[in-house]
Amino acid sequence: MTDGQTAQLEAERAAAGIIPGVIWSTIALQDAEPHVPFAKRVVRPLRGSPLRNLQGWLEILRLSRRFDYVLVRQMPVDIFAPIFAPFVRNRVAVHHAKEVEEHTLISDGPIRRLAAWLDRRLMRVSVRNAVASLAVTWDMAEYERDTYDPQQPISVYPNLVGDDAIRALPDRRDPAQISAVFMCTTFTDWNGLDRLVDAVRKDPDHASRLQVHLVGRLSEAQKTEIAEDPLLAQVFKIHGYLERDIYRVLLEQVHVGIGSLALDRQNMVEGSSLKTAELLGNGIPVYATHRYPTVPDDFPFFRNAPHVEIADLIDYALDTGRISRQDIVAASAPYIRKCNGMLSAADFLRSLSHRN
């Protein structure tokens, strides 16, 4: 599991005890040796193979007899779905991406196209045999419903944070220079680093006042483009992967966090990245070009810009910089608490019981 996936499940497990009237259990399967109590290791013969989903389905079958509903994150290229999905009538499909479309966005080629073709057919079987679908955004949930089962009930279960992650960081911002952080596990097309680079080149005067910290994995082409352009090399500081404690020290210095800038490349208008909830929970406003599913459209600490402009980014950082981090946390907390997302999901599941 990634650090973000682990953090999500740890927050879910911690909040489970305060959700009234619900017994909520969390289980994860992984190839690596588990280091969290809710994780189980895939048996040796199945590790690193598409056959590992067999163990997942056997676990789902077992849990389906113990619980009213089993929420299952969609498994890519799941060759066992046609075999097992029809026999688990209380499974809720959970989507964290437009899974099939991601095949062509991550890379192209005959193997990837074949995987997308196969996954589309397997996904149809899996989703149509689920009692409902949850997704991290509304437009993703609507896409899955409209693509695979127009009659299926849908709702959202966004990426949110536990109460222990909601606290203002110390404020060590430098008033002489606007500092932003752009963090991604890997800078893919839908993160939109290229759009930020283009915006910097279009407005070098404002860009000279800006420092953007890039945290995560950049391609060699992205690194070279930044290194060989004096303006880009001045604006962007490449950190690569940072340990959590070092990353938090960096966050103490920034005025604003940058969310995804090109979700339209996935035909999406909403995003629900964990980093957005984490930034707001630390008292850092977020600048992006998409909606966030749990905050109002006029929420002052999440800026959904129509497109990337450096002057707009700087103005937003200056405007929100007048607000204390404690006040930003207090305003953001109701929209980013994991337990609130779980309460909403539980209400949705209760509504399914009334339908049946």
Rank of each mutant, 00 (worst) to 15 (best):
residue 201 R to Q: 06
residue 84 F to P: 01
residue 296 P to E: 01
residue 104 T to N: 09
residue 63 L to A: 11
residue 12 E to K: 15
residue 283 G to N: 11
residue 281 G to L: 08
residue 300 P to G: 15
residue 20 P to W: 09
residue 271 G to D: 00
residue 33 E to D: 15
residue 169 L to A: 12
residue 151 Q to T: 11
residue 125 V to M: 11
residue 136 V to T: 01
residue 212 V to T: 04
residue 334 P to Y: 03
residue 166 I to F: 09
residue 91 R to N: 11
residue 84 F to M: 03
residue 30 Q to F: 03
residue 78 D to C: 06
residue 178 I to H: 14
residue 31 D to C: 11
residue 310 I to W: 15
residue 354 H to D: 13
residue 23 I to K: 15
residue 303 R to F: 15
residue 231 L to Q: 03
residue 45 P to Q: 07
residue 168 A to S: 10
residue 281 G to Y: 04
residue 254 V to A: 01
residue 125 V to N: 09
residue 339 C to E: 10
residue 201 R to N: 06
residue 36 V to K: 04
residue 207 A to R: 11
residue 158 P to T: 07
residue 253 Q to A: 03
residue 339 C to Q: 12
residue 232 L to N: 11
residue 169 L to V: 14
residue 264 D to F: 01
residue 258 I to K: 01
residue 205 D to A: 12
residue 188 T to P: 06
residue 314 I to L: 06
residue 50 P to N: 03
residue 327 D to Q: 10
residue 152 Q to V: 09
residue 231 L to V: 01
residue 264 D to G: 01
residue 124 R to E: 14
residue 76 P to D: 14
residue 124 R to M: 14
residue 166 I to Y: 08
residue 179 S to C: 12
residue 205 D to T: 15
residue 49 S to L: 06
residue 17 G to M: 14
residue 308 V to D: 08
residue 280 L to N: 05
residue 30 Q to S: 05
residue 95 H to N: 12
residue 350 R to N: 02
residue 19 I to Q: 04
residue 103 H to L: 08
residue 49 S to D: 04
residue 215 V to C: 03
residue 354 H to M: 13
residue 14 A to P: 04
residue 76 P to E: 08
residue 255 H to S: 09
residue 176 A to H: 15
residue 328 I to C: 07
residue 133 S to A: 00
residue 106 I to Y: 04
residue 218 L to I: 00
residue 169 L to Y: 10
residue 196 L to F: 07
residue 236 F to T: 00
residue 9 L to G: 11
residue 146 D to L: 02
residue 340 N to S: 00
residue 267 N to L: 13
residue 338 K to I: 12
residue 258 I to F: 00
residue 195 R to P: 07
residue 87 F to D: 02
residue 43 V to T: 07
residue 51 L to H: 05
residue 109 G to A: 01
residue 138 W to L: 15
residue 254 V to K: 01
residue 15 A to M: 12
residue 323 I to N: 05
residue 266 Q to K: 04
residue 15 A to F: 05
residue 2 T to H: 08
residue 77 V to E: 13
residue 174 D to F: 12
residue 41 R to V: 04
residue 141 A to N: 03
residue 98 K to A: 09
residue 222 Q to F: 01
residue 76 P to K: 08
residue 172 R to D: 14
residue 282 N to P: 11
residue 155 S to W: 10
residue 152 Q to C: 08
residue 348 F to D: 01
residue 53 N to I: 13
residue 94 V to F: 05
residue 66 R to E: 15
residue 116 A to M: 05
residue 311 A to D: 06
residue 28 A to N: 05
residue 200 V to T: 13
residue 220 E to Q: 00
residue 25 S to A: 10
residue 104 T to Y: 08
residue 192 G to Q: 02
residue 163 D to M: 14
residue 56 G to F: 08
residue 247 Y to H: 04
residue 95 H to R: 14
residue 350 R to G: 03
residue 154 I to P: 07
residue 234 Q to A: 13
residue 195 R to D: 11
residue 17 G to E: 13
residue 140 M to P: 08
residue 293 P to Q: 10
residue 126 S to G: 08
